[in-house]
Amino acid sequence: MAERKPIATAPKDGSKVTIIWKDVDGVINESAGQYRDGGWWVYTDSDTQKKVDPTSWRPASGDDDDQ
């Protein structure tokens, strides 16, 4: 698994990456997400998207540069 990186270094070109974020209950989550419309968005289920404030990121599964 790739090492987490500061969110400031994440690509903002619409690429899908894995982002790490904390929900309102303080639970840390990892979700596939992308930067668009001025923020980071994740799918909470197959139909619902949520804007989140991530703390870090790593390449999405299968995109690991370390292989």
Score class of each variant (00 low, 15 high):
G14F: 01
D23C: 11
V17G: 02
A10T: 00
K50M: 13
S61G: 10
A8F: 10
D47I: 14
G39C: 07
D23P: 05
V52G: 05
Q34H: 13
D65L: 09
V27F: 07
D63L: 13
I28H: 08
D13F: 06
K50H: 14
E30Y: 11
A60W: 04
Q49V: 12
A2V: 11
N29I: 08
P54K: 00
D23N: 13
W40M: 02
V27A: 03
A32P: 13
D65R: 02
G38W: 11
P59K: 00
G26S: 09
G62S: 05
I28F: 09
I28N: 07
D25W: 04
P11Q: 03
D63H: 14
S31L: 02
K16D: 15
G14K: 00
T48E: 11
W21F: 01
Q34M: 13
S15N: 03
K51E: 09
D47V: 14
V24I: 12
T55C: 10
D47F: 15
Y43V: 04
D23I: 09
Q67P: 15
V17D: 01
R4T: 09
A60R: 06
Q67H: 13
V42H: 00
W40Q: 03
K51M: 08
S46C: 15
Y43N: 11
D23H: 10
G62P: 04
I20R: 08
T18D: 04
M1K: 11
D23M: 09
I28P: 05
D13S: 01
K16L: 15
I28V: 14
P6C: 06
E3D: 15
D64A: 06
D64M: 07
G26V: 14
T48V: 12
G39V: 04
K5I: 05
S46D: 14
D66R: 10
P6Y: 02
D64C: 09
T48Y: 08
D13E: 05
D25Y: 12
T44C: 15
R58W: 09
W41S: 05
V52H: 02
W41T: 05
G33R: 01
R36M: 01
A2M: 10
K16H: 15
K50I: 13
R58F: 06
A10G: 00
D53F: 00
K16G: 08
K51I: 05
D63E: 12
T44S: 13
G62H: 06
D65M: 10
I28W: 11
A32I: 15
P11D: 02
D37Q: 12
D64P: 08
D13N: 11
S46M: 15
K50A: 11
V27D: 03
D65C: 08
P59Q: 03
D53P: 03
Y43K: 14
V52P: 02
I7Y: 02
D53L: 01
R4D: 10
G39W: 04
V42D: 00
A60C: 11
A32L: 15
